[in-house]
Structures are given as C-alpha cells and as structure tokens.
C-alpha cells in the first residue's frame, strides 16, 4: 500500500553534541537516515551509541546541533518549543519502556489524555479512547487503574494512548525492556499488527535482537554511525 519512495522521516547531516563541563561531547555526527512511510524500523546499538538521542530527535523531544529533520514534509529541526509540543501532540505517539501511565487515571482516562490537547468534545474523546483500547484488546479493562494491571497490560494501555490521536509516527523506546518474554511477544505482535493492518510507521529502539527481528528493517548505530540490515522488503 506504500510507494517505496514515500519517505516519512528524512534526516540529513544530523550532528548532536552536548556541552558537559566545558567539554563538548559528540553523540551523533553527520548522520543521514530515511524511514519510509508505513515501515517498521528497529534501531539497535550498544549503550551510549546515541540511539535514544536519535529517537528523541525524530520524536521532536530534542533539537539537533546541525542538520535537518523532515517528518512528513515538515522541517522540525528549527521549530520553537511550543511548535514542537504541538507537533508531538498531533504527529507522534510515544511508547516508553516503563509505560509512564499516570497512576491516578484509569486506563481509559490515560488513553484520553493526549486528546485533551485537541479540540475534541468529551463524548468523542471517550469514544476514541474506547476504540483505541479495543485495538489493543483491553476494552474490558477500561476502568482499571494502572496498579490493577499487569506490566504487559500497562504497556498495551500506553500503546492505545500513543495511537489515540492517529499520529503519523509511533516511537517506542525499549517497549519490551521491562516485560517478560510472553508479554514482550504480545506487545511486538501488537506493534506488527498496527504496522501491517493500520499502516502505522513505527520506529523502535531496542537492544533485544529478538525484538528487533520483528521489525522490517534494523538500523545499527555504533559510534555515531548507521548501518542497515534489512529483511523482507529490502530498503537501501
């Protein structure tokens, strides 16, 4: 359903350096990356390789020192903080390693949270949250609080929260890191489904080869440089 040249994420000459105690530390250097629309990409690499930094840049949480980031035709590397926040609200769905659900809200209310930022009526918010929870298979747990759910269930609520406003892009940072094998499998299957059935573009940081293997393409990041290992539909 996607044209191979339909690139959703286009990074060019990305450099990210941090100032730490007067010294500048180069995390990423002149890095290029293309992620096609509708693909499921994994980002792997050893600790400190800069994969989380790269993910943060793509998700609009951080800005590059140099280079351009184009997401779905919008240059986000020069956006103001406020515009970046709007971009995240409308275009990015986040999935974290430790779920980061608000403990005081029920599953449905957690899913509703991003919709508070959009001009959506309360009844519509409720309906959409329900739909999202149905997609992740937790319709019957709507009114449960996070502490009443298992880790896998919590992560599925987090995924529902990520997709509720129909973002361009899902970013997942070690989504299975805190889960047992079985739950992890379920989450990865869910991500695959979202990618295949709903056409969601997913980019996932992981250091688990088994998890990465579920993605269509694996980018390896090492010492600030990328290399690609693809399976299935190959992309150069």
């Amino acid at each position: 359903m996607n044209k191979p040249d339909d690139i959703l994420i286009r990074l060019r000459g990305i450099t990210k350096t941090y100032e730490r105690g007067g010294e500048s530390l180069c995390i990423l250097e002149s890095l290029d990356l293309d992620v096609p629309r509708g693909s499921f990409a994994a980002l792997m690499g050893p600790s400190g390789s800069g994969k989380s930094t790269l993910l943060n840049l793509i998700a609009g949480l951080d800005k590059p020192t140099a280079g351009t980031i184009d997401i779905g035709g919008e240059r986000i590397d020069k956006l103001s903080e406020a515009r970046l926040a709007k971009f995240r609200a409308s275009s990015v769905g986040f999935i974290f390693q430790s779920y980061n659900l608000l403990p005081v809200l029920t599953a449905a209310e957690n899913v509703e949270l991003p919709l508070l930022l959009a001009p959506v009526a309360a009844s519509e918010r409720r309906r959409r949250a329900q739909t999202a929870l149905r997609v992740v298979g937790l319709e019957d747990r709507m009114d449960h609080f996070p502490r009443q759910l298992s880790g896998g269930q919590e992560q599925r609520v987090a995924i529902a929260r990520a997709i509720v406003n129909d973002p361009l892009l899902l970013v997942a940072d070690e989504p299975t890191g805190d889960l047992d094998r079985k739950s992890a499998d379920e989450i990865l299957t869910l991500l695959e489904t979202l990618n295949e059935k709903l056409g969601k573009t997913i980019i996932m940081v992981t250091h688990d080869p088994a998890a990465a293997a579920r993605a269509g393409v694996i980018h390896h990041l090492d010492k600030g440089r990328l290399s690609v290992e693809a399976h299935g539909e190959v992309h150069a």
Binding site: A85, R88, A89, S90, V92, F94, F96, N100, L117, R161
Partner: peptide
Amino acid sequence: TMRAIGFM
C-alpha cells in the same frame, strides 16, 4: 511524560 505527549 505529559510534556512528551505534547503538553506545553
């Protein structure tokens, strides 16, 4: 988390 989701 709220900031990541897009809250200002």
